[in-house]
Design a protein around this nucleic acid. Structure first.
Lengths: 339, 339
DNA sequence: CTGAAAGCGCTTACAG
DNA sequence: CTGAAAGCGCTTACAG
């Protein structure tokens, strides 16, 4: 391994001078700089990250905590991972990705051993046990998802309440008076996935304001169960003119289900959803939808975290930020004539 | 931050003794051990990972290189990430996950700065530029996917050739004489995704042996294009009695497409596929299929890498390992009567 | 069974 | 504009 000492010897300077050329924290004569640069290139020197971390107490690594749940296939999580990784790199950070089931212990293990400068927590639930651990550790952290207790935490999430309102408004404007809502599966609620009830409650409340009848059902997570349950739901509410879907497995199966029932969109039924464009394109149809904004969430989370790391934990007040959702009209809803 | 020196002072011993209790590399009296353990717990001591890495030249971190391609939505990649992460943890390693577009440069950046003890490369293509870089760096690496030149590399992949044979055999045994094959999109071929042609070529060759007519088509990656193209393909080959699908977007859209055409499976058409069970359950139907074995691939890759790290790079000869595929009969194929 | 000391490869006051 | 030296927090021969 070639060290800073090798470079210094080759360039005929001290190690500190090499270090200062690397960091740019000191004025160095152009001649010396050139000699050092040459030596670095000739020897192929790259500073040892561990040594640097030890000397500076900065690892330039962020910890990313993912959670996998046995009852679901969550490939969509990758949509968050990518912006987190890219944004981190743009700020000079790498990502230590941890998928351990025991989140609290992992935070301590990684944090206490100083492997990272900060944490990003994905898929945060209402009473997420990782949040208290995050307070105990001396690195800052930012949450993607909303815990029940948001005091003193940095959290970012889509504004699911507003998303639901936007979709209900969209249907209301088009004259719909009876809507079926399919949410994520009930076990997500049990796990504390607050986005389920934030979206659901807001949809119900908004519909009530317009005197729209809304029938909310928990969807399923697996193809066959999805189809069975959706067919039952549609059987129960034959008068409904619109369907609001907040459930990946359901939106993927929807084309089949509707076709089997001979239902045309939007002629026979209007459909709105909450999903990502990429997902819809590959696995379903282009429905009018609110974008799940995974990229923006991941990007914002890391930007915030880096700011907090660099300015110190107390400089920036913790903040809960809800990203404003945007609807894209893809023509899957129709205007109802007043009867 | 509490250091090993604090623990030593509290326990009234030297730092080296604390270190040896931690590592277990030396016999320590039970009494001393107890005192040190108590001191560790009272102070909440966790060894600094950077310092340890500097002293031992071992980071206990593995680099995981992912690639994202603009032309596809690849959430399935998470199926590889999970076993990599879990297996690494089981061996005491963490995962530094890198998604940089410039793989070769990243390998040097991470490797030369000694941030990791080894590399796992995901989604390796035929002429993957990361493979030469891996040779230049002094950490070992293992590939998931098959490069053209497999000399001196450790690589693991599904045996796509055998997978294709198994599926053709399955159809052959049931008397099918004309098959439509839908492969991944053509841009995957252009990118060097060898699994496309390994599967395709083997299927064609195997079919030829049985004198089965096989019509191979490149599939599409997006929902609407998938449906259009599949309908065209099915129009061209009305006599085909079986469909072989090696394409996620197509398998997701298949229920709709077949239903729209009024095709029942397996009565009117037999269907076999190559996908993961999880994927099929959430996004499609339970077709008879060869399992894509992402978990096994990820697990095996890391196991191999850890072995190589610990035994030294030259101790274990590099090896290309093809995982034997397994078919699960889910009843989506029927026996044809000899006409 | 235990300790004092050197060393891992950096950074950064201190000094000139 | 540059250098000598201390220090970051560990591990591990060397010594007893």
């Amino acid at each position: 391994m070639v060290t800073i000492g090798d470079v210094a010897r080759r360039a005929g300077v001290s190690r500190s001078t090499v270090s200062y050329v690397l960091s740019g924290k000191r004025a160095i004569s152009v001649a010396t700089q050139r000699r050092i640069q040459e030596a670095i290139e000739e020897l192929g020197f790259t500073p040892n990250a561990g040594a640097r971390a030890l000397a500076t107490s900065q690892t330039m690594v962020l910890g990313l905590l993912l959670q996998f749940h046995a009852d679901e296939f969550a490939p969509a999580m990758l949509q968050y991972v990518l912006p987190v990784s890219e944004t981190a790199r743009a700020h000079g950070y790498d990502i230590l990705m941890v998928t351990d089931a025991d989140g609290p212990r992992t935070i301590h293990r990684i944090g206490d051993s100083n492997m990272v400068d900060g944490f990003v927590l994905l898929d945060v639930t209402a009473d997420d046990p990782r949040v208290p651990s995050l307070r105990e550790v001396h690195q800052p952290g930012v949450l993607i998802g909303l815990p029940r207790d948001t005091r003193e935490v940095d959290a970012i999430d889509l504004d699911f309440t507003e998303a639901a309102r936007i979709l209900v408004d969209h249907l209301h404007e088009r004259g719909h008076r009876e809507i079926v809502l399919v949410t994520p599966p009930h076990h997500v609620v049990e796990r504390g996935g607050s986005y389920v009830w934030r979206f659901r409650d807001a949809a119900i409340e908004r519909a009530a304001r317009y005197d729209i009848r809304i029938h909310a059902h928990y969807g399923e997570a697996q193809g066959s169960a999805v189809r069975r349950s959706m067919n039952q739901i549609l059987d129960i509410w034959p008068e409904a003119t619109a369907l609001m879907v907040h459930n990946d497995a359901t939106i993927a199966a929807l084309p089949t289900i509707l076709h089997e029932r001979g239902i045309r969109v939007p002629d026979d039924l209007s459909v709105v959803s909450l999903y990502s464009r990429d997902f819809g394109e590959e696995f379903s149809l282009p429905f009018t939808a609110v974008e799940s904004a995974a990229y923006e969430l991941g990007h914002t989370a890391v930007t915030r975290l880096v700011e907090r790391i660099q300015k110190g934990r107390e400089a920036v007040p913790p903040q809960v930020q809800l990203i404003a959702p945007a609807i894209t009209d893809r023509g899957s809803t129709r205007y109802l004539l007043p009867s």
